[in-house]
Design a protein around this nucleic acid. Sequence first.
DNA 1: CGACCTGTTGAGCAGCCTCAACATAAGTGG
DNA 2: CCACTTATGTTGAGGCTGCTCAACAGGTCG
Lengths: 265, 265
Amino acid sequence: MNGPDQLHAPILCSDCGIYQLCLPTGIGQADIELLDKIVKNRRIFKRGEYLYRLGHPFHSVYALRSGSVKTYVLMDDGRVQITGFHIAGELLGLNAVNTRVYSCEARALETTSVCEIPFDRLEELGQQVPSLQYQMLRVMSQEIAYNQELMLLLGKKNADERLATYLIGLSSRFAKRSYSSTEFNLSMSRSDIGNYLGMAEETVCRVLARFEQEGLISMQRRLVRLKDIEKLTAVAQGGGKAESPSPAVGKRPQSPVSSRNKQVG
Amino acid sequence: MNGPDQLHAPILCSDCGIYQLCLPTGIGQADIELLDKIVKNRRIFKRGEYLYRLGHPFHSVYALRSGSVKTYVLMDDGRVQITGFHIAGELLGLNAVNTRVYSCEARALETTSVCEIPFDRLEELGQQVPSLQYQMLRVMSQEIAYNQELMLLLGKKNADERLATYLIGLSSRFAKRSYSSTEFNLSMSRSDIGNYLGMAEETVCRVLARFEQEGLISMQRRLVRLKDIEKLTAVAQGGGKAESPSPAVGKRPQSPVSSRNKQVG
DNA sequence: CGACCTGTTGAGCAGCCTCAACATAAGTGG
DNA sequence: CCACTTATGTTGAGGCTGCTCAACAGGTCG
């Protein structure tokens, strides 16, 4: 995690707020007005409704104004991997540019307000406003970096590290939107969290229960309070247990960092 | 997997070949010449050398002319997640656009020839050639879709499915480059494959050995021959074992597709 | 208030990791 | 060219993390 929006705190543009597409200095007022004309298309999605579905033709991108959305990919037999959890200020759907067909589904986790932006309009405008083009590249670049972190989590972290990473990541994202970074509402169910972090729902419960018992957090249903962010951060990076004598050995999780993993190209 | 380059077979542009940046109809001859001026910068990397490293400043993107490259992210304690395996015709480095700093490392797996393209030059040119901008979006969009598949693999597939998916994915990528789709050289070590698929090196060996024993493939060291692509494809999608009576039940791997996973937003 | 959805907790099992020894290939230097 | 060293791949035994199955508790909603 560490997640999206690494460097640039998304800035509201005018009334609708295209957030990630606008930079403080990147786009002028006149351009913003142009942009506003395009994005007037506001929509509300209720919990469980789809912004777009797998295989549907690509026509628009979506800027989230409020609420939250999960995106996920599917296997034939119904297995689900949630690939993203998106909150206000983020931009969805650009990943369908290549094939012109959505490669994943996006579904509202709660009542969610979005701006729907027709991509061809956005493209036209991009040719008049170079910095807009650049912003699109940035948004996608950011998503790639974000996905890389998730892959690291899925491939190399154990259950404790995954959940700690998840909580810390949420915390810092909320902080950037000026929400509380220590107390917030997970809009995802335990099952969703499991499908996001690559673990069973039950394991999510158990680990959270242990975190609470160890004084790292407190929870009631989907409301979390982070009580020891420092220790949580340590857990997320694999320094969770062992303040043990042996500093290098006993890292515990998969990937032993043994002499073999020297990675020689 | 199914991997990159879904729809557009990358086309060589002039002598250097910017592959993914060019479409048959997208970019005119004059533009290609412009592009060529920029990408004259050819370089050779030997096995183990870095195209770029974590935290280094972003200045260029790299188009692979021949050879292969792995990209990966790191944890503090040395754990590694390989996030991409790239072959001739693919474009690397665009994921650093956002932060202007590389968020991963790229390392040659064998002697590899690349075109190094200064990004600011590419951007300038993009403003004159709109379709080039669009191509960049496409390349990144494609990478995102590709990463989503990898996340699905890492989060939801068991060892057999992972390796089958990996082999099938390689096969179809080689096919698109007009290499043999049934016999090819894995340029990654077992350890790399493990760090890519999120499993231990030993497990990679064991599963490959079993695949060979079951007549799906034959291997000697890094040379693979796919002997039953159909069955391999079935395994990749989780239909590997059970041609069992019960069609829906007994899916076997993590994520039971039980009644609970109904995913209700 | 009953039906249902979500979350919690327990018991048992198994897939995959860890550790370790060995085999083979690939370099390296004399 | 061969002996040595190192990297890479293979195979076995055993244990642990996290999954599965299952029953139940607490909320939520009609």
